[in-house]
Design a protein around this nucleic acid. Sequence first.
DNA 1: CATATCTGTAACAAGTTTAGTTACATTTTA
DNA 2: TAAAATGTAACTAAACTTGTTACAGATATG
Lengths: 141, 141
Amino acid sequence: MAANSQFSMAVHVLTVLARHEGEKIKSEKIACSVNTNPVVIRRLLGQLAQAELVESQTGAAGGTQLARSPERITLAEVYGAVSCGEVFALHGKPPDKNCPVGRNIEAVLCNLQKQIDRSVAETLSRHTLQGVLEVIEQEKP
Amino acid sequence: MAANSQFSMAVHVLTVLARHEGEKIKSEKIACSVNTNPVVIRRLLGQLAQAELVESQTGAAGGTQLARSPERITLAEVYGAVSCGEVFALHGKPPDKNCPVGRNIEAVLCNLQKQIDRSVAETLSRHTLQGVLEVIEQEKP
DNA sequence: CATATCTGTAACAAGTTTAGTTACATTTTA
DNA sequence: TAAAATGTAACTAAACTTGTTACAGATATG
């Protein structure tokens, strides 16, 4: 249970919200579909709210809804909202600066990281929440 | 120190080996450049050997060298050798199958995962170990 | 052949991260 | 004012990565 599944959860949560556009959905209802604790959902919704993908309202009759229509939310935005944006980590401890490789490898890797991030973002930007929703509704048996 | 830096280490290790093509390098020497323990390096070399990127020899005067020339080793192969191949994780606990979203979201995410993996692999396949080595040598002040 | 040296690997400790949980303050409706 | 919901802090548990020690097995060399 130490693998980062926040992106998966975020897509799931947003899809649930998209299925009920216009309604305010309670974190408990979302938690039920995701099969987790409402607090976990609220934490995630906090990140999505910061990225201005959802809007929440406190108080009785409160809940959360999408901040935009599903066609205007790409999965790249979702990924950016919940991910640290690093497919692989750089060195934990700094390499030996007396070795030419140790001295320069980090710059190479950092550059590589940026290329990969761009590539991932491009792939994800080709998908919208509406697209996900359509697959879900279509697959419903 | 719980972020996966194996790919970074692997590129580092292989670059060191590439700088000394034909020689057998000891794990202790590599560990010095990477600034870690020789056992950590040997563990990593084991994975790289399984992927047939390096060859090791036990015993006195033993060590490790590249199994192929650096022009013929792409970073996509390196990534495949050390990574589980998943940019993001699927749900830890299975979603609620009574909800249409919970029932079908995993297939959507799995498909997405494959697209991203392909995209990352394609980006990395455009780089060879020789290319990395050239940058390193060039940057040497 | 004996010894020194190196890899391969198991076992364990420590630190980090994620998810789950409880508890409670705050907001808002009715 | 009471009920119901979010926001958030604090803690626990589990999993993963790295670092470390220890030792068996292989091999070159005197």
